[in-house]
Design a protein around this nucleic acid. Structure first.
Lengths: 167, 167
DNA sequence: TAGAAACTGTTTCATTTGAAACAATATTGA
DNA sequence: TCAATATTGTTTCAAATGAAACAGTTTCTA
């Protein structure tokens, strides 16, 4: 059943593979950075997803679906978060005059100011937290992730007899 | 301008640093792999966090707090997920005879069977999805993430200069 | 042109998550 | 010993998330 036709007769059923180790580490690093971000924002009247939306919005307005695409989430997730940002006065909804289906998410002056204040500090903290990697290693990591990301975007071919069916 | 030897490199508000790019990619890769896992498990009567708990449980039982530590989440998160796993018959709670505060999470035979079935397929799919990286690159990625993880575990030295460096 | 199909954002529902408060239990130290 | 402290897991609440159904709008096409 789980007979692998790969030349390497490795049994990965209960073993740990380099791929699994890498993925586990990726989840852990992601979790820790997320936690740090949450703490950073705690005193700022913002949650992590709220800050992300703020980062993708603009004064002139951005369609909600464009933001959800960049955040890799569903439109339905953003409705509530935007509602809370509106309640806090950081963004507002405006209808798109060219397409009445679209509602544009616009930064208010307060939101733009918040962002001007927060974003540089956010970047600087991230830089400091990654100091355990040399400048070269950060570049290496970025390129590896970029390559992995591209590979994930291409739909994975189902293992139909392991035949190389490349389109 | 992109010389990053001095922390006085302010005005990165709209700029992107290698660190930020790496982090953004890390979030995207994480999101895509999570989505794939969700689809894989959809027909299996399991959600992603439910599958994770199953992976950390054992026939002889594991304290809930040990599972939450490995998953880097709060105990309170697991109560509900374990409840649903119990409802599905995959785990059960048993009191620890040595410490009456502890409740051990035990795989049932059905849960163990589910895991025997799922885990090898899960690993194999992950391996396939990371095929865009060579074996060497997977090792590289793992080592970089390992190093980054260790660096994040060590408490970041005072970012008191973060205040004066801005505004 | 009308109808079918696609797109955009919201609503609803179930699940997950983080945080705080809490009860029960265990450990420590005077 | 006994009272202060720490721990374990649960409950409660607010927020976030994924999925499905939906209404309003636009686009396609026969």
């Amino acid at each position: 059943m789980s007979l692998s036709t790969e030349p390497t007769g490795r049994q990965q059923s209960s073993e740990t593979t380099p791929e699994l180790e890498a993925y586990t580490l990726l989840r852990q690093v992601h979790s820790m950075l997320e936690t740090y971000n949450r703490y950073d924002l705690r005193g700022e009247d913002l949650t992590v997803p709220q800050f992300m939306i703020l980062n993708y919005a603009s004064r002139s307005g951005v369609p909600l679906s464009e933001i959800s695409a960049r955040m890799m989430c569903d439109n339905s997730n953003l409705t509530g978060i935007v509602d809370r940002l509106i309640a806090k006065g950081y963004v507002e909804r405006r209808p798109d005059p060219n397409d009445r289906r679209v509602s544009l998410i616009c930064l208010t002056e307060a939101g733009a100011e918040k962002l001007r204040n927060l974003r540089p500090r956010h970047h600087e903290r991230l830089r400091r937290r990654m100091r355990s990697l040399s400048e070269h290693e950060v570049h290496q990591l970025r390129e590896l992730l970029r390559s992995l990301y591209s590979g994930l975007l291409a739909p994975v071919e189902d293992d139909r007899n392991g035949q190389e069916a490349n389109d």
